[in-house]
Simulated scan of single mutants.
Amino acid sequence: MNGIHDMGGMHGFGPVKREDHEPVFHHEWEGRVFGMFIASQVPVPEGKRYKIETMDPQQYITSSYYERWMQACIQACMDAGVLTADDLEARMSVLRDHPGAASPRAEDPERLDSWQSRIRAPRSIRRESNRQPQFAVGDAVRARNIHPVGHTRLPRYVRGQPGVITRFYGFHDVQDHLLPPGTDAPPEPVYAVRFEAQTLWGNAAESNGALYIDMWERYLEPAPEMRGES
């Protein structure tokens, strides 16, 4: 989908600020939100990332990274009927009147150990497949000019632009493929594609600059010269 979250290549937002020795979490509440996001059992058919991407644009821009995650958790719980707007407002009212009040806690060591083991367990993201990749290293390709419904990792600023395959990563799950709950998406080839900076942004870009983007095969089509077009 197209939305304010797809900010890559957009102007007017200033430089990306790099923080030396950046901590994993800047505040304790961010770690709690991360835990809620990962361990929540509330079903979200469209995925929590989709909830983030459908936030009000003004709210999205003015929210921090984990504030967006928290909003996604809240919206998912509301959509599932686990939480209502009245429930949320009642709790927020208590905190406004008593900001120093202790938050309720539920201790479940067994569940905690289970989730920590799951998060820390090494696992390969590669998948096995009998199909043949459509492209090879060195092939000229073009990013499809498509606008999928739901979450997609195809940046708007490369759609319709030519590039070259520089690496083949094997087969991986498609993370923006919407399927019924409990259904796995068929794995697809993933490639690293090189896009020349001036192709994307014109003469304002450095002459020798390039951008490498990892892309699923569904995002790509043969360049005109590969199809024998003029």
Rank of each mutant, 00 (worst) to 15 (best):
E89H: 11
R68P: 01
Q161Y: 10
Q71V: 00
Q132S: 15
V44S: 12
L200V: 01
V164Q: 08
R126A: 14
T166D: 06
S40V: 00
I213R: 08
Q198P: 08
H98C: 03
F171K: 06
E217M: 04
S129Y: 04
E188A: 11
G14H: 10
H172T: 08
E221L: 05
N208Y: 09
P155M: 01
H151S: 11
R144A: 10
G12R: 12
H177C: 15
W201F: 14
L154K: 03
I146K: 13
A185Y: 09
Q198V: 09
G14I: 07
Q59C: 01
G35T: 05
T62E: 09
A106C: 14
V137R: 12
T199K: 02
I52S: 00
L211I: 05
R156V: 12
Y169C: 11
Q198F: 05
E107V: 11
D86C: 00
R68Y: 00
R131E: 15
P162D: 04
N2W: 08
P180K: 03
P222W: 13
P104V: 06
V190H: 11
D139N: 14
P122A: 06
Q132F: 08
A90H: 06
T54G: 00
P181D: 05
D113R: 13
D20H: 09
R227T: 11
V190E: 06
D56T: 00
V174P: 03
R159T: 08
K51P: 01
E110F: 02
N203K: 14
W216M: 03
E188G: 04
P155T: 01
Q161V: 08
G8S: 09
M215V: 03
W29K: 13
Q161T: 09
T152S: 15
D20G: 02
A204C: 06
D86Q: 11
P45G: 05
E46D: 14
G182H: 05
N208E: 12
R167G: 13
A72Q: 01
R153N: 14
E67D: 03
P162E: 04
Y169N: 14
Y212I: 13
L200P: 02
A140C: 15
T84D: 00
L112S: 12
H151R: 14
V158G: 02
A101T: 07
E28V: 09
E110R: 09
R194L: 13
P45K: 06
M1G: 12
N145Q: 14
E225L: 11
H5Y: 09
G163E: 00
L83R: 03
D86S: 10
I74T: 04
H151P: 05
F34R: 09
I165P: 03
D214N: 13
H26W: 15
K17D: 08
H21N: 15
P162W: 03
T183A: 09
R194N: 10
G150I: 01
G182D: 07
V190K: 10
V42A: 02
P23M: 07
V24Y: 12
R91N: 10
A136H: 14
Y212L: 10
A204E: 11
R123T: 07
